[in-house]
């Protein structure tokens, strides 16, 4: 079973794989792109680029802080510097470097965190990036993108490299359903409505967009028409789409594979409370560390599945 299956979506590649393939492809066209790796390129998928362009690739060893500042140094020489690690090691270990070397001087560094969320499974909580979005969003001027499928990830990677300035891209380890046709439109900061509905809007990103689609499919059976918004960019947030959803559906449920505090839910709630206050509910990891286990088992245990979304929708519909 995978998210999106109930909605008739086909299973595609993991977003980390799509990022890696796109990076290698774009690397051929963009000689200014360089990669700095902290010895996990075969996990984060910068490896294909590094193999294709060894002269533009630098593995600095297991040293995320140095990786980020070296990337910033390269960026200050006009390079588009991509660095990556597991989301939690990148954001947590190298946060000061992301703040001082990258965000403060507005360096053209693209930092990519793989292994996001609890769905990485068996490796356990030390490896799970569930606070990364909150940390990234706290950095002034940094854009934060959480793509939901392989096609969108490829488009997001291209958009990220074309954009000048610091960007955090969050990718996942597991295979995810294909939501978009090849060549789909992608704009940083512009949410995508995957399904229209008038009773409630489910706003999700990453892995949970497929789950939101399945929840909407399920809700339709009981006569609830749910709109689904893929909020792939958390910063800058698409206020217009949120306001429209609040006005037109009067209820919002925010779904993410992240802690409760400081992620998509917090950002959407800030917009809603300031513009069109409506009842809201949240589906997320809450305020805890997870544990080792099989990915689906974990998602079910920690309430990140279509059933949990359906329950959240019912809680706001009353």
């Amino acid at each position: 079973m995978y998210y999106g299956e109930l909605s008739g979506l086909k299973l595609g590649a993991a977003t980390r794989d799509a990022f890696g393939d796109a990076l290698k492809e774009l690397g051929a066209k963009h000689p200014e792109v360089v990669v700095v790796d902290a010895d996990v390129g075969n996990s984060t998928r910068t490896e294909p680029f590094m193999k294709a362009f060894p002269e533009r690739s630098f593995n600095v060893g297991i040293a995320e802080s140095n990786m980020v500042s070296v990337a910033a140094g390269l960026a200050s020489c006009g390079k588009t510097a991509v660095c990556s690690s597991f989301a939690t090691f990148l954001l947590s270990n190298a946060f000061d470097q992301l703040r001082m070397s990258v965000a403060f001087p507005k360096m053209n560094v693209k930092f990519v965190g793989s292994h996001s969320g609890i769905s990485i499974g068996e490796d356990g909580p030390s490896q799970m990036g569930i606070e990364d979005v909150s940390l990234a969003c706290s950095l002034p001027g940094v854009k934060v993108i959480v793509p939901s499928d392989a096609v969108q990830t490829a488009a997001a990677t291209a958009a990220m490299l074309a954009d000048h300035g610091p960007i955090y891209l969050r990718t996942g380890r597991s295979k995810v359903a294909i939501l978009y046709p090849n060549g789909c439109d992608f704009k940083i900061g512009k949410a995508i409505q995957l399904r229209d509905g008038s009773d409630v809007t489910i706003i999700a990103n990453g892995l949970m967009v497929g789950a939101a689609m399945d929840a909407a499919t399920e809700l339709a059976k009981s006569g609830v028409n749910a709109r689904v918004l893929d909020m792939h960019t958390i910063k800058p947030i698409d206020e217009e789409a949120i306001v429209k959803a609040a006005r037109e559906t009067q209820r919002i449920v925010v779904v993410e594979e992240h802690l409760a505090h400081g992620g998509l839910g917090s950002v959407v709630a800030t917009v809603v409370s300031r513009t069109v206050p409506v009842p809201m509910a949240y589906v997320n990891v809450g305020d805890c560390f997870a544990e080792s286990g099989d990915p689906q088992g974990l998602l079910d245990k920690y309430g990140l599945n279509p059933a949990a979304i359906v329950a959240a929708v019912k809680s706001v519909i009353g």
Partner: peptide, 14 residues
């Protein structure tokens, strides 16, 4: 020093 290393590598690339 990390920033300087990055710049030194960037100069080398250019």
């Amino acid at each position: 020093l990390s920033l300087g290393l990055g710049q030194a590598l960037g100069m080398h690339l250019d």
